[in-house]
Simulated scan of single mutants.
Amino acid sequence: MVTNNQLPPANHPTHYWHALADGRLQCDVCPRECKLHEGQRGLCYVRGREGDEIVLYSYGRSSGFCVDPIEKKPLNHFLPGSSVLSFGTAGCNLACKFCQNWDMSKSREMDTLADSAMPVKLAETALELGCRSVAFTYNDPVIFLEYAVDVAKACRELGVKAVAVSAGYIQDAPRREFFQYMDAANIDLKGFTDVFYRKICGGELQNILETLRYVAHETNVWLELTTLLIPGENDSDEELDAMTRWVVSELGPDVPMHFTAFHPDWKMRDTPATPPKTLTRARQIALTNGIHFAYTGNVHDPAGGSTFCPSCHEVVIERDWYQLGFWGITAEGRCHVCNFPLPGVFEAEPGHWGPRRVPVKLLE
């Protein structure tokens, strides 16, 4: 293990903000545009005003590190079978009532950030552990943009990929900087109505759609989408039909979609868990509307988790939970049956990490 880890600063300068005529400072990272007096923090909690600037309090600090299968992010077309060093910080810039990482994303205690690691240390640790990538996950990395970007830069120098797991709620200028340094992203498309985003998530759908268009068409980031289906909230045939048609027309049929099961949590403990048949129905709607790769998640469904060639419909990657089985992709990234080129980031052989989840303690 790499040692001599430099301790993180108590705060870190940021540059996406400006002064208002009334003396407040406005944070310009996300559409909330929090306007802060001295000593106040934004809704995300980790960005706040100190003196005449807005600083980041979570730079170099984490709620914990873990080595996961890349499929858990979920990313099914990005270095399948490989391991990823995952970590998050605290706070979030949305207020999703169903949050399943609420203990971290809604934390208002900096003691949550008990582990520390500066960017170079994180990149070196990922390399030592044999991880092909580092993932910013558990809470949204756009709120710790400066830290995530510096980690991604350090990773790039060592040949380690950077993965963002995000809701995509971010303004244009920081969006361009952030995704410039990402190699892959799984972005939550939480629903497909303004009402759902405002009532359940405390955000705006149109900003998310702008982020998705930007990543799909103006970057080289490998993109996959996740929608957590909540009974009675975002799982109607009409909404799923509209969403999947939009993805095909605006992003393209090769962007994989993951439909995952909700379980009662945080402020929605009285809402029932998602029936597996709902996920199967969503997957079928997506496939019918032209999505080439649609998956189910958070349930045991080998067929819904496996990858099929969109041309000949043969299995090319067999999955059971996070365990890979049959591998039918050639060294050139094509279907072993019909030679159809499969979109994604593949290597000649799949990784062999399997379903393991291994907590990691970084030594100082």
Rank of each mutant, 00 (worst) to 15 (best):
S86W: 06
L75Y: 12
A242W: 08
G168F: 11
N289R: 08
H292D: 07
E204F: 01
K73A: 14
W17C: 15
R176E: 11
I143M: 05
S249H: 07
F259I: 00
E38P: 04
A21S: 01
V2D: 04
Y322Q: 08
V120Q: 07
E53N: 03
V165F: 04
E250H: 04
P276I: 03
V2T: 05
E224V: 09
K199T: 10
T280F: 09
T211N: 13
V120T: 12
N220R: 10
I143F: 14
K199H: 06
L75K: 12
L75M: 05
P359T: 15
R32E: 04
L189C: 00
A331N: 13
R49H: 01
R213W: 05
K97Y: 10
S62T: 08
K267N: 06
L205H: 06
G351P: 14
D103F: 07
L212Q: 06
V149D: 14
V134Y: 15
R198K: 14
R269M: 05
E318P: 10
N4Y: 04
R156G: 05
H77F: 04
V360E: 14
S82L: 07
L43D: 10
V299K: 02
K35N: 06
P355C: 11
T280I: 15
L189M: 00
W353P: 04
L25K: 10
C44N: 08
A95D: 15
P31Q: 03
E33Y: 09
S83D: 14
R41M: 02
Y16K: 13
T288N: 03
P9D: 11
M257R: 03
V255H: 01
F192R: 00
C99G: 09
S107Y: 11
A282N: 03
V248T: 00
R356N: 15
N76V: 02
M257L: 10
F179T: 07
W102K: 05
I54K: 06
E364S: 11
R175A: 08
R41A: 01
G51A: 10
F136C: 06
K199I: 12
P343F: 08
A90N: 09
A294V: 09
V142G: 04
P119E: 15
F192M: 00
V120S: 15
L129W: 13
A21Y: 03
L209F: 12
D188S: 04
L43V: 05
Q206I: 11
V134I: 14
A242K: 07
R283Y: 02
A21R: 10
F87H: 06
L20D: 03
V142H: 03
E349P: 13
D103W: 13
A167K: 03
T330H: 06
C44E: 12
E146M: 11
G290A: 07
I200F: 07
H336L: 09
V195K: 00
Y169H: 07
R156L: 00
K161A: 05
N298G: 02
M182C: 03
F78A: 06
C34N: 00
R61Q: 12
L228S: 01
L189H: 00
A114T: 12
L363G: 07
P359A: 14
L85C: 13
L324G: 14
C155Y: 08
L25T: 08
V149C: 13
L324D: 15
C335P: 05
T271N: 09
V163R: 01
E204A: 04
P119V: 14
